[in-house]
Design a protein around this nucleic acid. Sequence first.
DNA 1: TCGCATTACTAAGGTAGCTTGAATATAATG
DNA 2: CATTATATTCAAGCTACCTTAGTAATGCGA
Lengths: 137, 137
Amino acid sequence: MDGRNTAALLYQAYLRLAEQINTATIARNPGSRPAHATVFIHMENEGIRLTRLAEKAMMTPQAMGELVDDLERLGYLRRVPDPTDRRAKLIVFTDQGRAALDSAFEVIARVERDLERLLGPRKLASLQAMLELITAS
Amino acid sequence: MDGRNTAALLYQAYLRLAEQINTATIARNPGSRPAHATVFIHMENEGIRLTRLAEKAMMTPQAMGELVDDLERLGYLRRVPDPTDRRAKLIVFTDQGRAALDSAFEVIARVERDLERLLGPRKLASLQAMLELITAS
DNA sequence: TCGCATTACTAAGGTAGCTTGAATATAATG
DNA sequence: CATTATATTCAAGCTACCTTAGTAATGCGA
């Protein structure tokens, strides 16, 4: 079906890298699922409310609540009362959660190093610039 | 979360292009869903059996059967008896199905032309080469 | 010809990742 | 101080896309 289909090529390359990242992070953080990543992506160090987290991730508070439930059960997050509003809770990292975040950064950094070895630094930079251009187009 | 995450950039660029392709093809072929694309991708002009189609797409014949049911109902495919085996049926394109396939190619070609205008032919070729390299790595 | 394999179909079930709806507690406002 | 809005949570449901299980007809090798 493809005699030059850049979209398909992008997807395959993405799958290749995502598989590496998911495999490594799930191995390091047993019990976690890809969907949990959106929580880490939108977390804030000082703590964040569920509603705000949900807004940032563009989902309902209920859906985000389930993800946070999981990560709390797994020991990555904790809910503490928000001192400024007794209805609200602040979702904060545990030490384990911070370690998991660091670990995820390391995994990504390793993949980036592999890419740099594969393509060379100049070409990798060129690739990233083109991808940003496409996304913004 | 990203201070240079090529995987994320790849995904965003892919989403940008896929959204264009899906929107255009679904607009041209009402009733079709993204999952139906895998059928078109693995179809064969001379006709193909359900089991073989399922194998190529790496899913169960039952799952593929449903997709083919949909596309038959929508008028893109037809099941005809396989003259060489009375258990089997050949899934073949209707004229409408062939037109839809052509139309999908046109949509992709349009996206490729847009990309060529955005990046230039040399850089687009370089992008594709890098994506293939990543996929094969 | 007997027994097993293959092709397709029907039916039911499962999973991931969401949603909508409704309840409770607290806050903010006129 | 009555009303309305906000933060969270419990419960149920939904969609897309698959799966496993079981049935019937036909083909094929020993």
